[in-house]
Nucleic acid binder design. Structure first.
Lengths: 178, 178
DNA sequence: CCGCTCATGTAACTGGTTACATGATTTA
DNA sequence: TAAATCATGTAACCAGTTACATGAGCGG
């Protein structure tokens, strides 16, 4: 009955559930401050998305004013709430546990196309990027911890675990290159 | 000068470099047998993609025949080869080392929307999916090992490392839920 | 001879990107 | 008072999805 929403749509719904009634702008900001590159979404995607969810009956709108500035606040409907819990409940959509996309890994498949010194340069650069990202993720977890947001903290621990695994892996790759 | 190709385009180029001249069909099959959900591409994306790369001068075509059946074989040009090495060389495109998208992690952010028993059901299902995927990844590595394809084997080790990290993480999540 | 695989494509659609455009309010 | 932020949107574009369509060759 409820056909497949995109991951962006689910995340928007989830955000509204978590933070309460929000403007499209607030959702957009939330995405853009996320450490994951997947959620760097902009006005061009988020405003049509909110309209879509509204048309589908997952959100209600209320237009407010603050001085001369209007703003539209979106709230979850019962149907929207249900969409969220369905998304979180088994059976999880195929692919939820499947291999994630990793642009570094994809590159390693073709690393033989480089000369040995260039391969090492690749590994070095990759490692630096991973380390920089890891410290950002550690900061993110701290912020959630101090806010007392347990589930976001657990999620952030997920990214940390993955970043550490990728770091150890890239070290192994580098070791094989020398 | 060489503006951004998509990850799919780079992977197609990489495949041709690795396997030599290939038909669009062969590339398509290669993608569809990949364990990563990102490469489940189909005719509708791959044929236009190859044409695009050809128009851009990264590939050349040669039309052959086998009986009455025609097939177009694509080969890498020098420019295509250069696009591949550029893609693999530092500085790696921003985001190559950034946090990867993980549909399980995204869900955990909103897990508080479920009742405690449903949260545990989520974790259980997630774990099963991860385990199933992990064994597929182990098989993949074995296949590469026996073929003697070192870099693909290293790449496969990357997915294994990540899958294991996710498994340990989901266990920690499950532990926090009880 | 039936069904699968090889092989090539097209057409309609859709979600997301980039860039543009506007204007009010807040802050340095 | 200038710049940043809040807030809303549109328009052109593009890559990838789904579904359709065709036909040769091969193995059981």
């Amino acid at each position: 009955m409820m056909k497949n929403l995109t991951h962006l749509e689910f995340t928007a719904i989830g955000n509204i559930w978590k933070k309460g009634p929000s403007t499209a702008y607030a959702i957009m900001k939330e995405f853009s401050t996320s450490p994951s590159a997947h959620y760097r979404s902009s006005a061009g995607s988020i405003y049509p998305l909110m309209r879509r969810l509204h048309r589908r009956g997952l959100l209600t709108t209320k237009t407010g004013r603050k001085g001369k500035r209007r703003h539209k606040t979106f709230s979850l409907t019962a149907k929207g709430r249900r969409a969220l819990t369905d998304w979180l409940s088994p059976p999880l959509a195929e692919g939820a546990g499947s291999t994630t996309y990793d642009p570094l890994r994809t590159r390693v498949y073709f690393l033989a196309a480089l000369t040995p010194p260039d391969r090492r340069a690749f590994a070095k650069d990759a490692k630096q990027q991973l380390q920089a990202q890891l410290s950002r993720n550690l900061g993110e977890r701290e912020r959630y911890r101090t806010k007392g947001d347990l589930f976001s903290e657990l999620a952030a621990e997920g990214s940390i675990a993955i970043m550490r695994a990728r770091l150890r892996w890239i070290d192994r790759v580098a070791a094989k290159l020398s």
